[in-house]
Structure formats: structure tokens, C-alpha cells
Design a protein around this nucleic acid. Structure first.
Lengths: 191, 191, 191, 191
DNA sequence: AATTAATCGAGACGGTACGTCGGGTCTTATG
DNA sequence: CATAAGACCCGACGTACCGTCTCGATTAATT
């Protein structure tokens, strides 16, 4: 396909990178468009050509780092979930991860979710589903229990989130505790 | 002790009321100290005599509405928890409730939690504990299972929260589903 | 000489035309290079290939319309000058004429006058001189009085200009009044 | 009269002073509101509380320096006018004087003249009139000739202005030449 | 009754960031 | 080569809000 006429757009990634660095360095309230522009070696107009306002830029920047949670295949459902919970806590504790969360919270009331939101959610969903599917393949879960997977994962995510909101650490022991709770919603369904 | 000399302070409640109305009317980003002052018929100095900054005012305003979740005593643990989940969703959907959440999220990274936070948490904890205790008294839960109450409630809260963050409705059916999951973390512990 | 290789230059006049229209339409503060380029169906590069900056373009555009004041030969010095004053007022009231004036004022402080300036001045001077010369030829002026022609014309120009700056109309009566004054600087010199 | 409530306004003069200095230092195109604010040790809001936009500020700043031309009473009409012409040239050559002129030219096309304009004009008019009146009192001018005073002064101002626009110096000799011309418009009216 | 002192409504202030705009430069693909 | 298109860097504009400040006016407890 033909490139359009005129000077081609520069690199978005470069700017998003700078935005994330700026966010990490100064936090949410110190996040400044001028700061981003300066750090990226770019004029403000270049930012406004790409994003309609500051929030959109931040949302997009954060999205690039939110592709998904690292999934592991340990061969055991309990171990997989525990690792997932730990990774999740780690991810949410990083600036980018926490920013994702903040933006999600901010925009729940808005008319429509930010464009990147579904993308992030899909990433999480994919990772989570593959864990469950592997467990079913291994015979750790019945097909019936699998139907409760989404709920179980919502509980797991929510549990980790509540720990963070309570400023309680999410160490391995804690993660296992949560996972055991979540597993209990799947295991006993035997009838 | 005796009142100090000089003109006595006016009414805080009146201002907090105005702050909440302002928050509800314009949302988080439109929440302005000038706006609050105007709506309350008050000068900005009156605000800064009481709260050190904007966030504190909002936090305090929100706290007045966050005294706690309505607790019911239906005679059944499952019913109590289901109602709790529903009430929680309703509460978080109101401006004040959602503001509480936003503030909580905002300030997790801060050095110390806002003053009202522990108060709010205590409210929730008290409500939740009484539900569990009644269940134990009725024999629905073993004392051992009771030890897992806090975890179970964290899962319940987290589950409801994740539903809201996903923009999925929390109707009665959904609440029951979550509660059943949470109960599964308590019930099977029978040894 | 041979034309150089490559695509030949387009038409300058076309651009100057657009510039003048733009100036007339939006005034001095709304005069924009992007606007000129758009109106002329031309890229900004084409502008900068021809003029070093915005002011030069405007100056040049204006110069094309400032070739000179319409001179008439009525057979009488007084009548010639009156018509000159009226034409001058009319010319200065048009966008192009007024722009010439603005640019002149703007650049008095500059290191060197804009290129077109001398051209414009020469136009005026030529017109004015021919009026005076005809008057001498007719015997209306002595050769001695002719030496005061430049000063007289400066007074005439200045008088008209001051009327405009005072927002006072320059109708025929007013023009005659000015001319009579100016003529008085020439006529009585008889010794 | 009662002072209004609230913190009283600061000093306008101080800001106008800074504006003039800024104008003098960087010229018309380098005249920046941020620059003025910084130099005055003032926030931009303070500027916009007083003037609706940049041009108004500049106009006002300039007006403070344009109270009038120094008038002298030398005892002779010719001498008075010569000094007036010289002073006028000097005044217009200063940054503030020239700015006045620029603004006048800029706003001739505007709907209504800037507020300060009439003030400035009145200053000039007063000075000029008193010169003429003294001449009448001394018998240098007839009462009839006095009626042509305004026109004569317009010619004088215009003559000086045209000299400046032509980048020609206005030294004493030149001023006398102009004055002689202008006087010629008054003197011969004897019938 | 007069004094004292904290609080009040009002609003101007210094500062900082926003989102917009325009100038002048550059980098493409097309004639 | 010179274009038309248009993205780019820069920096000023005018707006909004924060948190501070300075007023004159209130309002009690203390003299």
C-alpha cells in the first residue's frame, strides 16, 4: 500500500516510553505534558497530533506495558494460580500496572471505556484461560468446574487487589491462601 | 474543656455536604475548591482552616457518607452475604462510594493512608465480622472456618469490585454466584 | 539563458493575490501563512522558497498593489493636489494601502527598510513630482517655489495621514483645506 | 467611600513599568506576557485581572508615558512650534512613543479606539492649543487665523511623522523648515 | 461597655499546567 | 529540481485551578 504524502509520522513508541518514564519519575500528579515532550525531545503539538488530551496519552502509554501477565506452566493448577497471583501483585505494584488500575477506576463512570481497556482485559483473560485449560487437560478440573473459571479468576484478581488496597503484602504465603480459597470454589463441585 | 476565645467555628457538615454535591455534580476532575466554597456560601479560607488540601477535604466529605454498609440479619449466612454483596455494589456505584474507592486507589502509593481510611475499613470490618459471628452462633460455621473469615470477605469484596471494574452488572444472581464461591472457601473445611 | 533542470517554478502573482485576499479577509492579526498557503492551493515550502519570512511575503503582496497613486492632469495645480489627497486617502483606506502603511511603521525601527519600500516611495515621488513640474510649466509655480515641493508634499501626505489616524473623514472639502494650507507654503515665497 | 471587600488590588503602575521596560528591551515582537509577569514579579493571572489581552496591556503601558508633549513658552510662536516639532520627533523615537504610534495605526481599523487613545490625543491637543492661544494673546495671530490652528497642527504633526517614516532625521533645521511651512498656512490670511 | 482574638466571606495573588495556535523547518512522494 | 502535503520543534497565548495572602466584618469570651 502507498504511504501517504507529506512528512511521515514519527515514532509513537518513543513518546510512550518517555511518558512512562515521566509517570514513573514524578507520579500521577507530577505527570506533565511539557515534561513528556521535553523528555521525548518533542514538541507538544506532536503529542496533540496523536492523543486528544493528557489522559489519553497516559492511558495509551500504560497500555503498551500492559500486554499481559507473564504466564507460567508449572504442571500444577495450584502452582500456576499462585504464580499468577504473585505476578499480578508485582505487576500492579509497578507504576505502569498501578496506573492501569487508576485509569480503569477513573473511567468506569465514563461513557465508554478507553480503547486500550479491552485490549488489556483480553490479555489477562487469555493468560487466565490457558491456565484453566491446561488444568482441564491434565484432569485436575472437570469440564463442569471449568465453567466456573471466569468467576474463580475474578475472585482471584479481586482478592489480590483487595490485599493491595489494604496495603497488606502479597507474599507467597498469602498468594497460596488466596488460591486455596479460589480453588475451593472449583473443587467441591462434584455432583 | 472550655471553648477557646474568639468567634467559634462554623459547621463542618454544611461544607462537607456541599463538597459531596459538587463531587456528584461535576465528577472527580471537575471537583474544584472554588466550586465547593461557592456552593457552601463560604470563603476558601474556611476550607483551608479545616483541611490542609483539596484531597483531604474530598476524603473527609466522602468519609461522612461511608460510615458503613447496611448490615442485615436474615437468619442465614448465605442470605446475609448476598445482601452484603448487593449493598456493597450499590454503595460503590454512588458518587460517594466510588469516590472512596478512587481515593483509596490514589493513595495506596502515598506515604500514609488518609485519616478517614482506617475508619471506613473498620466500618466494613465490623459489619462483616458480625455477619460471621452470627453464623457461628447459629452453627453454620465452625470456629475453625471463622478464622478464614477475613480472607473470605476479602474475596467477596474483591469479586464485587472486579465486576464493577469490568462494567458488568451486579444483580442478585451474580451476587449469589460470588457468595457461593466465597462460601466454598469456608464450607469444605470440616476436619 | 537556459532554464534550469527540474520542475519549473509556479506563479508568484497567484500567491501574492491570495495573500492580499487573506489580509483583507482576516486583517493583520489573522494573517496566517497557513491561511495563505491554503487559499493559494500551495504548500508552505513554496512560500518559503520565495520569501524569507511572513513579513516579507506580506510586504511583497502589498507592494504589488502599491505601484502608485493615480495621477490626474486637470490643468490646475490646486485641483491636481486635491485629487492627489483624495486618492491618497482612498488608497490608504483599502486593506493593501493600509497594510503598506502598517509595514512602513513596523519597520522604521528595523535595520534596513523592506526591499519594496523604496519602490513604493519612488512611485509616490514620481507622481508627485510630475504634478509640480506641470504646475511650473504652466507658470503656476516659480522655479524657486519648486524647491520647496518635497516639503510641501510631505506636509500634504502627513496631513492626510493625520486625518486618518484621527478617524476623521477626508472628504473633498477637507482635502481642499489641506491643499490650501500646503499651497500657502509655496505661494507666498516671492522675495 | 468604602473600600470593597477582599484583598485589595496591587499596584498597576508597577506592572505598567515592567511592561514598558520589557517592550523597550525586546521590542514589539519580543513583548511577552510571561516576560512582563516575570519582570514585575507577578503571576499571569494578575495581568489578566486588569487587562483583557496583551494588546490592551501594551496600550495602557504606553499611555502612561504618553501623557503629553513637553510644552515650552519661549515667547515666540515660531520658536514654540519648532520646539514642539522637535519634542514630537524625540517622543516618537522613544520606544513608548513609537509604540503609541504603532498601536494607533493598528487600531484605526478596529471598531472603537482604545480607551487611552482619546486621553493621549487630548494631551497633545491641550499642549498645542495653549501654544496657539499664547500667540493670539501676543498678537502674533489674528483670531481668524486661530480657527485654522487645528489644521495647521495636523500638518505639523503629519510633517514630522512623514519625516520619521521616510527615515529622515528631524533636526532643528528640518523642524524649522516644517514650521515655516505650517506658519505659511496661518500668516497670509489677512483679509 | 470595651477589649481581644479567632473566624468568617470575599477575592486578589504567584505559580503551574492545560490545550490551542502560529511560525519556520524538515521530510516525504509526486510532477 | 520544485513542488503539495503535512508532521515537526518551539514558544506564546489565554484559561483554570491550587494554595496563600490580605482585607473588613462578625462573633463571643474576657476584661
Amino acid at each position: 500500500m502507498a504511504r501517504s504524502i507529506g512528512r511521515p509520522r514519527g515514532d509513537d513508541e518513543h513518546i510512550l516510553e518517555a511518558a512512562l518514564l515521566e509517570y514513573g519519575a514524578h507520579g500521577a500528579s507530577g505527570f506533565t505534558l511539557n515534561g513528556v515532550a521535553r523528555r521525548a525531545g518533542v514538541g507538544k503539538s506532536a503529542l496533540y497530533l496523536r492523543w486528544p488530551d493528557k489522559d489519553s496519552l497516559l492511558a495509551d502509554a500504560v497500555a503498551t506495558r500492559s500486554a499481559g501477565i507473564e504466564a507460567v506452566d508449572s504442571g500444577s493448577l495450584r502452582e500456576d494460580l499462585t504464580t499468577l497471583a504473585t505476578n499480578l501483585a508485582t505487576y500492579w505494584r509497578e507504576p505502569a500496572g498501578w496506573a492501569t488500575l487508576r485509569i480503569t477506576v477513573d473511567q468506569v463512570g465514563a461513557a465508554e471505556p478507553p480503547a486500550f481497556h479491552q485490549h488489556v482485559i483480553d490479555g489477562h483473560r487469555t493468560t487466565a484461560r490457558s491456565i484453566v485449560e491446561r488444568a482441564v487437560a491434565r484432569g485436575e478440573l472437570t469440564a463442569h468446574a471449568q465453567g466456573h473459571g471466569p468467576l474463580a479468576l475474578q475472585l482471584l484478581y479481586g482478592g489480590v487487589l483487595m490485599r493491595l488496597l489494604s496495603r497488606e503484602p502479597v507474599d507467597r504465603a498469602c498468594a497460596e491462601q488466596i488460591v486455596d480459597g479460589v480453588l475451593a470454589t472449583l473443587a467441591p463441585i462434584t455432583d
